[in-house]
Amino acid sequence: MSVTSIRRLSPTTYSDNRKSRSATRSWVTAFVASSATRRFMTYLAVFEGKSGQAVDRDVLVGALRSDWPDAEVTVSSDATPGREVRDVAWTYGETEGRIEGRSHIDGTCLYLEGPLRLAARFAVWYRGLVPSVEELIFCDDTYSFTVSVATGASPEGVERAVEASF
């Protein structure tokens, strides 16, 4: 359910107070369900590589293992099907949820499936690995929003920018 369709689900006014409360409750439930769906999705942290630079596979793996020691990291072999978008894959979980991450073989994109809060944290962390001359964009897989992740950005700031775009 999209945000647009939620706006059309405004509560109907009823003379009977119980019906009105029920309609309002249904509308609020639909809104909360939509927000939860939007927040747990596939996000991308991507840059164009205009400078001819990328995040090297070994650098990414080393940084994941040192900065996220509880993450389960796997590195694909040359014969792995789908390697282009699963060159390095990892899962990480904590009380905020669980996220699955993958890197594109060209070293310019992370695919992050999970809650917005964790995806924003990984995007800000990835910014530290991305060449400083590159603009890092955080978006969802449908490009319904784009947020530039600047050097020194906070996960909370990225999350607020995403929420403000809806």
Rank of each mutant, 00 (worst) to 15 (best):
V149S: 04
G97C: 12
T29G: 03
S77D: 12
M41D: 14
G101I: 04
V32W: 02
L116K: 02
A36K: 09
L44P: 00
F166L: 07
M1V: 10
Y126C: 03
L112C: 04
R21V: 11
G101N: 12
D106K: 06
R127I: 12
Y92T: 00
D106P: 01
V73W: 01
Y43Q: 08
F122R: 05
I99L: 14
V59P: 03
T4I: 04
V147Y: 00
P155Y: 08
E135A: 13
G97N: 04
S165C: 10
F166K: 02
A36Y: 03
T91I: 07
L129I: 06
M1T: 08
R65M: 10
E163R: 14
A54G: 09
G152I: 03
S77L: 00
V158A: 04
V147M: 00
E134T: 05
T146M: 09
P155K: 09
G157Y: 10
T74N: 06
V88K: 06
Y14K: 06
T74V: 08
A123P: 01
S20D: 09
R39D: 04
Y92P: 00
L60R: 09
E135S: 14
L136H: 10
R83A: 15
H104L: 01
E96H: 11
E94I: 00
P69M: 10
G107Y: 10
V85N: 11
W90L: 13
T146N: 08
R98F: 01
L136M: 12
A89S: 13
S20Y: 15
S154Y: 02
I99D: 02
S132Q: 07
L60N: 08
V88N: 03
G107W: 12
I99C: 02
V32Y: 03
T80V: 07
I137G: 01
R18L: 12
A153F: 02
A23S: 13
D106V: 09
R121G: 11
A79I: 00
V124Y: 09
S15A: 13
S20M: 14
E94R: 09
T151R: 14
A36V: 13
T42R: 14
A30Y: 01
E94W: 03
E96A: 15
T146P: 02
A79M: 04
E84K: 11
A54M: 09
A23H: 13
T80K: 04
L136Q: 08
A23K: 11
C109A: 15
C109I: 03
K50I: 05
C109F: 02
R8K: 11
T74H: 14
S103V: 14
T42I: 15
G152S: 14
E159F: 04
L129Q: 09
V158Y: 01
V3S: 06
T37I: 01
T29D: 13
V28I: 13
F166D: 05
S144M: 01
V149E: 05
S51Q: 10
K50S: 13
A150R: 06
T4K: 14
D16F: 12
A120E: 02
R160K: 13
T151C: 12
E134C: 13
T80A: 09
V147D: 01
T146A: 12
S76Y: 11
S2W: 00
F31P: 00
S20F: 15
V85P: 00
S26N: 05
I6S: 03
P81A: 08
A150I: 10
S22F: 04
G49R: 12
A120N: 01
L129V: 12
V59E: 13
A63H: 14
D58K: 15
M41L: 03
S5E: 15
